[in-house]
Design a protein around this nucleic acid. Structure first.
Length: 288
DNA sequence: GCGTCCAGGTCTACC
DNA sequence: GGTAGACCTGGACGC
């Protein structure tokens, strides 16, 4: 069977807009968010070099996917949209255990807490590397350069395509600077299957062991690994970066710098959900 | 126009 | 295990 438009149901209380705008990913190519229409566009690589552009919009009790051409059921696009929007994430434990009757009741009531992610863990990993030690503007530039130069201007390049380029290309064309050798090594490791980021989604390793595994990727330190863990659905790390710290200082410490331990102490009561708790707390004013 | 700082950090060498 | 210094880029800022 082929399809071009599909409706998929969403979990009770799911909030499309808050999920899309849950963090900066919706501004990174090949995502495009149309705020006026409240639609999220994404172009999938497709098969045989034929990309498929999707527009995802909110409908009653679900979301609608509109493609620019018909694809077979086995294309996997429906599953990828479910993955992107975290439709299969089980958040009831977080809503009931951390939000009900607490400062985060708004998260439960409004259906927040689902962090947008890319269709593949590999894409999220490359994008996370692009967020390290630079301005958000440079992150956007690096990612759009990858899409423009290696994804035909439409889709995110696969590991094989990225592995075919050398460090010089990433330095000169992508403007990745010192991250360039990290991209080459990561892409070649994934292309040769010596590293399989997609396996992290279903890994049964304890979070600290999985974090070590993620950190074995060159260029991935504490922040990047914990950010990846959040996108994998594990929230027991805070993924502190300079932006998150700055927000905390403003909201909870009268604008004054404090230690990471103090930040951790405030959210430690949320246990395995502390990473999601701090993220919702620090981004609350995005959603007014 | 120029120099400095630093932003959604990490790695290496050294102690 | 803890820490200083180096590392690309590019926008903001002060002079």
């Amino acid at each position: 069977m082929m399809w071009k438009t599909k409706l998929i149901s969403t979990p009770k209380g799911f909030n499309f807009g808050l999920t899309v705008r849950s963090h900066g990913w919706y501004n990174l190519a090949p995502f495009f968010y149309d705020a006026t229409r409240n639609t999220l566009s994404y172009t999938f690589a497709g098969t045989k070099g034929k990309p498929v552009a999707a527009v995802i919009s909110e409908v009653r009790n679900g979301v609608r996917i509109d493609l620019d051409r018909a694809v077979p059921d086995r294309s996997g696009i429906e599953e990828k949209v479910r993955h992107i929007l975290r439709l299969d994430d089980e958040l009831n434990a977080f809503y009931e255990g951390c939000c009900t009757g607490t400062e985060f009741d708004w998260v439960r009531k409004r259906g927040a807490g689902r962090l947008l992610r890319s269709p593949t863990v590999y894409e999220d990993l490359v994008k996370t590397l692009c967020t390290t030690n630079c301005s958000w503007a440079l992150t956007e530039k690096m990612v759009s350069n990858l899409v423009d130069m290696l994804g035909g201007g439409s889709h995110f390049p696969d590991p094989e395509t990225m592995a075919a380029q050398d460090e010089k290309f990433y330095r000169n064309e992508i403007k990745a600077g010192y991250r360039s050798p990290f991209f080459v090594e990561l892409a070649r490791s994934v292309a040769s299957k010596s590293v399989d980021p997609e396996e992290w989604l279903t890994s049964e390793l304890p979070t600290d062991e999985l974090k070590k595994q993620i950190k074995s990727v060159k260029g991935v330190g504490d922040y990047a690994a914990e950010n990846m863990l959040k996108l994998l659905g594990r929230y027991d790390g805070l993924a502190l970066d300079s932006w998150l710290r700055g927000q905390f200082y403003k909201k909870h410490n009268s604008g004054k710098v404090c230690s990471d331990k103090k930040i951790e102490k405030r959210y430690s009561k949320y246990g395995e959900w502390m990473g999601l708790a701090i993220w919702c707390d620090m981004t609350e004013d995005w959603h007014h």
